[in-house]
Computed example of a mutant assay.
Amino acid sequence: MKALCSLLLSLAAAPALAGQAVDYEINGQPYQGYHAAARGEPKGSVLIIHDWDGLTDYEMRRVDMLAAAGYDAFAADLYGAGNRPVDTAAKKAETAKLYEDRQAMRERTLAALAQSQRLGDSDTVVMGYCFGGAVVLELARAGSAEHIKGYATFHGGLSTPEGQSYSADMPPLLVAHGGADTSVSMDDVAALSQELEAANATYEIQVYSGAPHAFTVLGSERYDARADQHSWDAFNDLLEETLGSPAP
């Protein structure tokens, strides 16, 4: 209960954002991420990939939480500076552009990773929410980025495009999934598990009973405090295993 209250207070009653916007370019086009430096001696870096809303205060709050715990943290921008879709149709359109152009998805993610590593520690865990979770798995399958120590996806898309696969030398992967998710089914979870087993990959899948899709989004109708806390604890374990001490 104490840990849950701490998490809720960190998100709901957080002070003004402690980090800062970071402008960067990809192929001559402007993007704007968000960075917060680790308090004290850095334990490593965390790169956060946003959901289909684009980079918003939600990811920024998570960046601040990680920085307060001693991690250099950076939230990527995969849509472009100022492009933050509001209605559902616009959000679907933005994600479709990248789902249909996987090379662009990887290029933008790797550019954000490079920016993150320029600002902080090179050893990095990459995590993402919803659409961002699918992007994390895309990066994990590509396997070309240096200094990535782990991956985590929260209520993310889990399907594997034709022609792609996982490898045995992939860094550890955490999959946090809601048992009541109607957008990504338990059949999808099982299929991913079979792929990872076939590849002899190192992974952990946690399923939280009754939790719907987007269960970590505080203030939404889908928010599930228990699943949010348990998935954050599991993420802490991954950080401790791969980078050092966990976040509170």
Rank of each mutant, 00 (worst) to 15 (best):
Q32Y: 04
D51P: 00
V86M: 13
A89L: 00
P42I: 00
L66R: 12
D51V: 13
I49E: 05
D23N: 15
A21W: 04
E59R: 02
Q20F: 12
L55G: 04
A21Q: 11
Y71C: 02
T56Q: 12
D77L: 11
W52P: 05
Y31M: 03
P30W: 08
E94V: 03
Y24I: 06
F74I: 08
A36F: 03
H50I: 00
D72L: 11
K97W: 08
D57Q: 15
L66P: 09
T95G: 11
I26T: 12
A90M: 09
Y24M: 05
E25R: 15
A36E: 03
A69H: 07
V86I: 12
R84Q: 14
K92P: 00
K91F: 10
V22A: 01
A81S: 15
A36D: 09
D53K: 05
V46L: 08
A96P: 08
P85S: 12
G44N: 07
D51E: 13
A75V: 05
A81H: 14
G70W: 02
R62I: 15
R61G: 03
Y34F: 06
Q29W: 00
N83F: 12
G40W: 00
T88R: 13
A38E: 00
Y71Q: 08
G80M: 13
Y58D: 04
E94L: 15
H35R: 12
N27C: 03
H35Q: 04
G70I: 00
R39N: 11
A75I: 01
G33N: 01
D57P: 05
W52R: 00
Q29Y: 05
D53F: 14
Y58F: 15
Y31H: 11
P85Y: 14
L47C: 03
Y58A: 05
A69C: 11
E59P: 11
G28P: 08
T56R: 07
R62P: 09
R39Q: 02
A68G: 02
K92D: 14
A96M: 09
A38G: 07
G28V: 01
G33Q: 08
G19I: 03
G19W: 09
T56Y: 02
D53S: 10
Y24R: 04
R62E: 10
E25H: 13
A75G: 10
V86A: 14
A37I: 08
H35C: 06
D23C: 14
I49G: 08
M60Y: 04
G80H: 13
D53T: 12
K91V: 04
D53N: 10
K92G: 06
T88E: 14
P85Q: 09
W52G: 10
A67L: 01
Q20D: 14
K43S: 01
G80K: 13
G33F: 07
D64F: 01
Y58G: 07
A69N: 10
Y71K: 06
Y71R: 06
A89D: 00
Q20V: 02
V22G: 00
T95V: 13
A89G: 05
V63P: 01
Y79H: 13
I48L: 01
P85F: 14
P85G: 09
D57M: 10
H35I: 12
A81L: 14
Y24D: 01
Y24A: 05
G80I: 14
V46N: 01
G28T: 03
K97G: 05
A75Y: 08
